[in-house]
Nucleic acid binder design. Structure first.
Lengths: 419, 419
DNA sequence: GACCCATTTGTTAACCGTCGGCAATACTCC
DNA sequence: GGAGTATTGCCGACGGTTAACAAATGGGTC
């Protein structure tokens, strides 16, 4: 058994359920926070880090020292002051790389990032419908990882960790894909398979959670406590963060916002229910709006939702009335569903992410805001910012890599002893 | 200005939003946990407390020592063991009392509890529709408090604190009723008014939050992390707890589950929207189901929902088919709305509370379970226990008093120096 | 240009608080 | 009195902060 396993095989058998907080957790949280500030404000002085985090300068100095010792940070210069110049810290771009792997129904995407989560390189391998065995998927991941690491040049960079997202219910502590509905996987110890083949600390989770972590570190979630990210794609779902940290639910399946009922006894949904949010605002649902409005629309591309949504986006730009009606109809449902989240959870921000949100963009968002204003209660509504994600690239693989960084930061040894 | 104010008037002006955790918080959380164990398992040995909390015996001993010094706990006897007998701890019933005040639209309820949150006495004063000025409400609270404390006998007991719930959006830190829709209150510094007149540390909050705190301490929330309590009354709302603690949302208005849309463009709701959950499962909504099924039903009591719901409950017991249909119809909506919560939040338990849940009881719950099973996703569904609240009495005033106990426990000085 | 001082930054040590482990003590039973 | 268990006190490890101190620079003075 390799020691690169990120999940101790036997754990979690504690007698009680309450997460007892230890002082160690405080240090780890501070490391996260300081790393976030350095990434966002780079180059940045210790003084400024202290001001932004609220920590004392002494604590900042020790934590920064740890991060320098771990090879993540670097003093990159100095800044004038009235007295001694401030040293400026930045992420050491040679300090190591992180891998973010997004396993979806039709593709496996492997992205390489530096320790500041700046995108370096990426490959995407298509997944045919027959290739749904875990070992086949693992094969694609391994080949993708080899490709990007190979291209990264010599000497091979130090890999700090890999984050892998798999759809469905994932037990992130055990590295187990508990249930992946599309492939009918049950309790696949995916993480072990991967660690064994990669020799890299691997962190398995679900794409919704990766997306919210990416927003927390780099997007609308920065400096906020309660954030929801809505993944609008073929399926739809929500990533949730409460009090500044990821919320997973009791059994790692929180966030199935797509399968909450919006229209009782409404449109059938592929989950078997009726009137689910996903049936109206998922890509197939949007295509259905178009088909119902104009069955012969030239924007319709049979068997290719992506092309249809693209055509729709072009139609909006061109002022096509049918396209506009489709957007309005979609927003009628999406807005009500967003208002539900606002009323129930009173978040600070709701972020629209994934490819449908990207393509339909501002026109959809404007309509949604108007609908939300009608449905949501006044006070929570004004407290919530509704925005599109500003993250570049695939925010799922970015979030997966971020989870790997969090894992790495959690395991840095504290160095009091110096020498 | 009195020093019994529980809310420092100037606070919260920190530059950053992240709640920086201190080791002090750990101690406070452990005090809560140990107090909960003592209340639930009383009389209980230190050993058992350690086993149930997962803390070391040493830590349990120090915290128990603090609580004894604060007058909350007492050694009440010994338990045989093979060697030295275990000392048994219990709450000191003479250690102090807590007040729980539930301010509703039509009444002010003041309950007195001992430090173990056992009910001692209570009074309810009716609130006429004209009596909606803050000072009038305060007057009722003060008179109620004087009554129960007067009856408690001499010498007057030590009051550890008072928790007061007010409907609407409440800023618990500042003790301000930010917005109470029924009375059109805006930014009433209710807490200051009360502290000044009572001379008792007062803790203001919202009834939904009180209800979930009560469940966390004494009901289905014990030893659970993620719990939802549904308040089914004239209005409906949800109290939320994530990771073992109360969730308030960004601006203290999380939990408006009653105003999430379940039937797009459905029944009008008094909030101005349409198709809200409350319009179907709030008491008036249930009465409307009955009216639609049988406009001449003898169970209908004009202008008295409570009587109608009571008649409905009797009808169910008697096997009245109309009553059963009304329950089924109500469950059709309630079940779907509960399933939404399960899919979105994946909680460990959902607790049905308040007077409608009490009266319609098991028959409603059975129907709801069946509907939820159809609507919710399989895996989160089996992970969620759906139950009626087992708390006796008014769980809102109980929760309010519990909030006061939490406040008291947070402010116990740590005593290393002894003598 | 040499020197000194003010000023600010960064580091170190001391302190307090938390928890856990271990040994000494307390207590009862056999 | 000895065995066995409970409780307590003490110590170490770790966290953060405060305060004192060392380091680095600029500016003024001779």
């Amino acid at each position: 058994m390799m020691d690169s396993l990120a999940w101790p095989a036997t754990e979690g058998a504690r007698g009680h359920s309450i997460a007892k907080g230890t002082s160690r957790d405080i240090r780890v949280a501070n490391r996260f926070e300081i790393m976030r500030v350095v990434i966002a404000r780079s180059p940045v002085s210790r003084q400024r880090i202290a001001a932004e985090t609220g920590l004392s300068i002494a604590t900042v100095a020790t934590v920064v020292g740890e991060l320098i010792a771990a090879g993540l940070l670097l003093e990159v210069g100095f800044e004038d002051s009235a007295g001694r110049p401030r040293a400026l810290m930045a992420v050491d771009h040679a300090g190591g790389v992180l891998l973010g792997v997004d396993v979806a129904e039709t593709y496996v995407r492997v992205d390489l990032f530096d320790a500041a989560l700046a995108f370096l390189d990426g490959v995407e391998e298509a997944l045919s419908p027959e290739e749904n065995r875990p070992d086949q998927v693992v094969g694609h991941i391994v080949s993708g990882v080899r490709t990007v690491l190979g291209r990264a040049g010599t000497p091979a960079p130090r890999v700090l960790g890999a984050g892998i997202t798999v759809p469905g219910q994932v037990d992130h502590r055990g590295g187990v894909s508990v249930f992946a509905p599309n492939w009918d996987w049950h309790d696949i110890a995916f993480g072990e398979l991967l660690s064994a083949r990669l020799g890299i600390p691997a962190h398995l989770d679900n794409p919704l959670r990766a997306a919210i972590v990416a927003e927390l570190w780099f997007g609308a979630g920065r400096r906020r406590e309660d954030v929801v990210v809505l993944n609008l794609g073929t399926g739809v779902g929500a990533g949730l963060a409460f009090r500044g940290t990821l919320y997973r639910g009791a059994t790692n399946s929180a966030g199935e916002w797509g399968h909450t009922t919006l229209v009782l006894d409404g449109r059938p949904c592929h989950c078997g229910g009726c009137g689910c949010v996903e049936a109206y605002v998922g890509a197939p649902g949007i295509v259905q709006h178009l088909r119902e409005l104009d069955p012969d629309s030239p924007m319709l591309h049979a068997n290719d939702q992506t092309a249809t949504i693209d055509a729709l986006a072009r139609g909006i730009d061109a002022g096509d009335p049918i396209a506009q009606k489709v957007v309005a109809e979609t927003a009628r449902y999406l807005g009500a569903a967003v208002a539900n989240l606002i009323n129930l959870l009173n978040p600070e921000a709701i972020v629209l992410s994934s490819w449908v949100a990207t393509r339909l963009g501002e026109p959809l968002l404007a309509e949604v805001r108007a609908v939300v204003a009608r449905h949501a209660l006044g006070r929570p509504f004004v407290a919530t910012e509704i925005a599109r994600s500003t993250l570049p690239g695939d925010s799922v693989s970015l979030g997966a890599a971020t989870l790997a960084l969090e894992g790495f930061l959690s395991e840095i040894a504290t160095n009091r002893a110096k020498g």
